[in-house]
Write a protein that binds this DNA or RNA. Structure first.
Lengths: 206, 206
DNA sequence: AAATGTATAAATGTATACATTTTGGAGGAT
DNA sequence: ATCCTCCAAAATGTATACATTTATACATTT
């Protein structure tokens, strides 16, 4: 088992909430779990730190990230900035087959919505919205920020109570894109993000 | 010599242009240079990859990042988005002693401008502009993006020909901040970045 | 000459053993 | 009780040795 696979497995545990924010990760325990020495485990932890999943400090145990409400706030601000920019650029460069892919992602995410994979479907949908912008680096930064939120959502057991509203938001987003209504689309997305931010912050302690 | 120090030394080599974009980094050679085994070198390389200094692929040699013009373009776009946002937020929350620090950074950067540390002074100045926004994560993202540009600027031997204009831009930025002229400040910064983008792209090959 | 295949050298990945640092708790002082 | 100090146990950091993969040079073919 290589570092990448160890990192991928641990990432799945973190984004699913099995490992919660602030929880310790001991090299020895992980090494035993995957039946390897601590060397590939160390590599895996560094990979995870690079993706923003854990905090690493020399000589200290690795810990699942655990952001304060004000840090979460900054993350949502950054998401607003980057995601609305991606959306604008996407609309400006939108082509026919992009809409086909978006419709497909929407349908798929509606199916996932009721399952425990709703977050995957949600991201796949939003990614399909932003893809026409052709901004790989920006998209990857958005993915990192979303993952950060998702870790806390899963860790604090946030229930997606507003599912129906969010699904309707998605429909409206697609409609706005189809008619190239840039400002309207951005407005829907901004509210969508504000809702998500509120829901998460309400579930957080401090 | 620990992983952090090795990484810091190699980072200095990269941002100064001693190690240029696309250049190989072999674990064995680095280990010999710092008289350590390859284990801490591997850690150092992972740290550098996390900061975006090098590309790492399993079983392959590490390489200094080497972006295409279109990737550089995206980086400058992101810088524009994030840096102008930091600037706006900074102006809205600006307090008296912030301006004192900004003036100090400006004076210091004017001294550095003629030396080989001009990039350090430039970043210290811009950081002092953005600091009042109190957005640590956003600031750190800006720092990463700037470092990416700097690596290519150093590697392609870009000469700061427009030094005088840039120093004047800095003066004008401070003036705009002092009078809380948000839009004017953002406009100056946007042009400042556009100039830097042009200068770098002109020096790049493909 | 260009392209393909192959062998050997060289580089990276991992396990084990040991050094160094942190951690968590026992015991005593305030 | 609460806060120290100190020590043993446990965790992390590093060196060495070996396994695995990649890369370079060279021969072969088209």
């Amino acid at each position: 088992m290589s570092a990448e696979k160890i990192a991928a497995t641990l990432e799945a545990d973190i984004v699913s909430g099995v490992l919660r924010p602030g929880e310790d990760l001991k090299q020895g325990e992980i090494a035993a779990r995957f039946s390897v020495s601590r060397i590939p485990v160390r590599d895996a932890l560094q990979l995870m730190a690079a993706r923003g999943l854990i905090d690493l400090e020399r000589n200290r145990r690795a810990r699942v990230i655990d952001l304060s409400p004000s840090e979460i706030d900054e993350v949502y601000h950054l998401r607003g900035l980057l995601e609305t920019d991606c959306l604008r650029q996407a609309i400006r460069q939108l082509e026919a087959d992009d809409l086909v892919k978006i419709e497909a992602a929407l349908a798929h995410s509606n199916i996932d919505a009721a399952t425990d994979r709703w977050a995957d479907g949600d991201w796949a949908f939003h990614k399909s919205l932003y893809a026409p912008a052709k901004r790989p680096r920006e998209l990857s930064m958005v993915e990192d920020l979303r993952r950060t939120c998702r870790i806390h959502i899963a860790g604090y057991g946030v229930l997606p109570t507003l599912t129906d509203k969010w699904l309707k938001d998605h429909e409206n987003l697609v409609a706005a894109m189809r008619s190239r209504a840039e400002d309207r689309a951005v407005d829907i997305l901004a509210r969508h993000l504000a809702d998500a931010r509120e829901t998460l912050l309400a579930a957080m302690p401090g």
